[in-house]
Design a protein around this nucleic acid. Structure first.
Lengths: 114, 114
DNA sequence: CAAAACCGCAACCAAAGGGTTGCACCATTC
DNA sequence: GAATGGTGCAACCCTTTGGTTGCGGTTTTG
């Protein structure tokens, strides 16, 4: 049967930078903060971490590039907000991978028991 | 109420290298191949990709380090197999993040409507 | 046993990543 | 209007990463 949810090379190229953005402890920590704490400014965020404010800014921009975070100016501050949609994308991608594996196992089993 | 599924810094440090391993198009492609095609040798795998066999080996070792893949010698070949468990870990991690966000939204809503 | 196939190891290279410091620039506040 | 607080930008640094080439070693195969 056809497999409409197959993982195309295009999807691979789309998902890779998303996972890459998640692949850093500091950035994951930032996401956790933004998830549970709500919108905050950079200096407030960087107070929790052990690296400089400028480093945190760079990380936030990487997250923004991946679509995991959004920023908006508010007076002299720049407020950063979590963006849940892209996280769902990553979620779905992993699910497709798992399903592909299960399908392969199923085919293997059917072949062996034949 | 207490929150036993909270994302601790330890979990962040554990999850980061896992996502980092997923954060490369070539490695994702390798995972897709191993998921759908079953156990294969390096040279067979590298035939599909545009980089050298040695580069593919490096990628596979990164995936193995992250626990996403396993290898076993078999005669003169080294056979690589997909390992689904760590993929579930990543899956669960993303789910915890989503839930944390939903909880925060719920608290915000309760606060606003108070 | 000689040739071919499969792999491991090492050296090397260019580019990207994560981090820092220093300074200039608005917006607030006193 | 002067000081302060929050950012932005640029230069610079070291390490990691993704990739290559070259070569030697070990199973298969003819």
């Amino acid at each position: 049967m056809s497999r409409p949810e197959a993982i195309t090379p295009a999807k691979v190229r789309d998902a890779a930078p998303l996972f890459a953005a998640l692949g850093d402890a500091t950035r994951l920590g930032l996401l956790v903060s933004l998830c549970s704490g709500g919108p905050v400014s950079v200096t407030r965020l960087s107070a929790t971490f052990e690296v400089s404010r400028q480093a945190i800014t760079k990380h936030l921009e990487v997250l923004a590039e991946a679509g995991l975070v959004r920023s908006s100016r508010q007076g002299r501050e720049r407020i950063w907000t979590f963006e849940p949609r892209r996280l769902d994308d990553a979620h779905h991608y992993l699910e497709r991978l798992s399903r592909q594996w299960d399908d392969a196992l199923g085919r293997l089993k059917a072949f062996v028991e034949r």
